[in-house]
């Protein structure tokens, strides 16, 4: 019995004594820095290239109060996921599920805000192909939105599996790894919010 437990434990540890899944998540996060770095660099390069639509530029198009509220909600969702982890560590699965669901809802509100923002921009004539500035904006914030959507699916999957009792083994590790992904999505937005929305283009 003890040997079986030891074998099961060894399956999930590297020779450094680290969890394979957690190490994998950090390697993934390291690679994602390069992924988002490319889009942030492209945005910085093209933020002043307005093509044939000089009226569509960062000083005229962004709605800072709206995006500030979205940013606040995403930041608080990071707090939600660490509170879910704290509950998981205490073995309080009911509270863990509450925080997982709250985090997923905050992520959905953020994503809905992004969809609304894109809809408004499109209505004002700012499309993907309007100028290099608009292309780099949509690619950067769009890929971030896709990451948020994947995070919401992961959170809801954890919530649903816990609800039906299929998240009993290694709950803390799983919640921590999904939490790491969610925090990474959050820190990318921390950078995007400043670089794209707050720093003046001129």
């Amino acid at each position: 019995m003890a040997a079986e437990a030891g074998a099961a434990s060894a399956e999930h540890e590297t020779s450094l004594g680290l969890s394979n899944e957690k190490l994998g998540m950090w390697v993934f996060i390291g690679s994602e820095c390069l992924f988002f770095g490319a889009f942030i660099a492209a945005y910085i390069l093209y933020v002043g290239s307005y093509g044939d639509a000089p009226e569509i530029n960062p000083t005229t198009i962004y709605d800072i109060p709206f995006t500030s509220v979205s940013t606040f909600i995403l930041l608080m969702s990071s707090l939600g996921v660490v509170l879910a982890l704290a509950a998981a560590q205490q073995g309080n699965h009911r509270q863990m599920r509450t925080w997982l669901l709250a985090t997923a809802i905050m992520g959905t509100v953020f994503l809905s805000g992004q969809v609304y923002e894109f809809t408004v921009f499109m209505a004002e004539g700012m499309t993907m192909s309007t100028s290099p500035f608009t292309t780099s904006f949509y690619v950067l914030t769009g890929f971030h939105g896709v990451h948020v959507a994947i995070g919401i699916l992961l959170l809801l999957t954890l919530w649903a599996r816990s609800l039906v009792g299929k998240l009993e083994r290694r709950t803390t590790d799983i919640v921590e790894n999904v939490g790491l992904y969610w925090h990474f999505v959050d820190i990318v937005w921390i950078v995007i919010f400043t670089v794209v929305y707050l720093i003046p283009a001129e």
């Binding site: 450094l16 680290l18 390291g30 820095c33 942030i40």
Partner: peptide, 19 residues
């Protein structure tokens, strides 16, 4: 663990230099 920290900083330093 410091190992995790190194993966994040490696990614950020590489991205910073490259871009």
């Amino acid at each position: 663990s410091k190992v995790f920290r190194r993966f994040l900083w490696a990614g950020m330093v590489l991205a910073g230099l490259l871009y």
